[in-house]
């Protein structure tokens, strides 16, 4: 099995706030990992550290066998080059809660700009690539529209296509459905599920426990900036070992499993 991502002892501090307190994680090619946790548990920060939208304070991140950054004198602390990070971000797709489509470009323009400017593709090649990826998320018919004319769910699918067009080695989803009206969540989750089934390596921060249960290969429960519990969806969602995990699952109003285990529902 190819290891796409390895995280060792990752720490992130914002001033005095110690958000991530030593995360270890290994992700293999084709895996879909769902990261759960209460707000403030550090799950978004973890994702943002993985493509260096936030700089890790400490720890080593290895992507496709290559350690990112250089060792500094201080053990565990790395320094990162701008070029290295830009090149790396091009290989790690990110989908945001707020979509963040470029409003001054058409849908296909949003998807084409990266391949054209970063990979030197001609407009024609980039358009073909954009259309292929828009088709993958089922929104090809909106290629010539501007984002403002699209629903939230449609916009988020375009954002997924935009990330896919860079042909990333893994995709990060940062609460991709949290800003959507309930009736639009399904179409985005469906696109994500298809992607997972196609073999894309995915790290998904979400509150959709149904998605975690049905799609994830592994579920990670973060608490206080550390991996509190980790395992298959069945293990973590139906038979959580840790009291804090049970508490989180109980409090989660969106927790709808096809066949809830007695432990998950029983305690109160």
């Amino acid at each position: 099995m190819d290891e796409v991502l390895r995280v060792e002892n990752l720490h992130k501090r914002f001033g005095l706030l110690h958000v991530l307190r030593g995360i270890d994680l290994s992700v293999h090619k084709g895996e879909t990992i769902v990261i759960l946790g209460a707000s403030g548990s550090g799950k978004s920060t973890l994702l943002r550290c993985l493509n260096f939208l936030e700089m890790p304070s400490e720890g080593r991140i290895t992507i496709e066998g290559r350690l990112v950054g250089r060792e500094t004198g201080t053990p565990g602390v790395m320094s990162y080059g701008t070029r290295e990070l830009n090149a790396l971000r091009a290989r790690v797709g990110m989908v945001f809660q707020q979509f963040n489509l470029f409003p001054h470009m058409t849908v296909e323009g949003n998807v084409m700009i990266g391949p054209m400017k970063l990979r030197g593709m001609t407009e024609e090649t980039a358009r073909t690539l954009a259309h292929d990826n828009l088709r993958r998320v089922g929104i090809l018919e909106k290629a010539r529209e501007y984002p403002a004319r699209l629903s939230g769910g449609q916009q988020q699918r375009v954002a997924i296509a935009r990330a896919l067009a860079m042909e990333p080695t893994m995709m990060l989803f940062d609460e991709a459905t949290s800003a959507l009206d309930p009736e639009l969540v399904g179409e985005v989750l469906l696109s994500m599920r298809r992607l997972s089934e196609e073999g894309m390596t995915m790290l998904v921060v979400t509150h959709e426990l149904g998605f975690a249960y049905n799609v994830a290969d592994r579920v990670i429960f973060l608490e206080g900036g550390m991996v509190h519990e980790e395992g298959t969806p069945q293990e973590v969602l139906q038979n959580p070992k840790q009291e804090r995990t049970r508490e989180f699952l109980r409090s989660h109003t969106l927790f709808r499993l096809p066949d809830p285990a007695p432990e998950a529902a029983g305690h109160s």
């Binding site: 971000r89 489509l101 409003p103 970063l118 990330a163």
Partner: peptide
């Protein structure tokens, strides 16, 4: 701020973020 981040996440450096995404808006 999300526009800068989205451009950064694609792999754009500072000048490209400015030129293609931020300044036009």
């Amino acid at each position: 701020k999300g526009q800068w981040e989205a451009a950064r996440a694609i792999g754009f450096g500072y000048l490209a973020q400015m030129r293609y995404v931020v300044l036009p808006q």
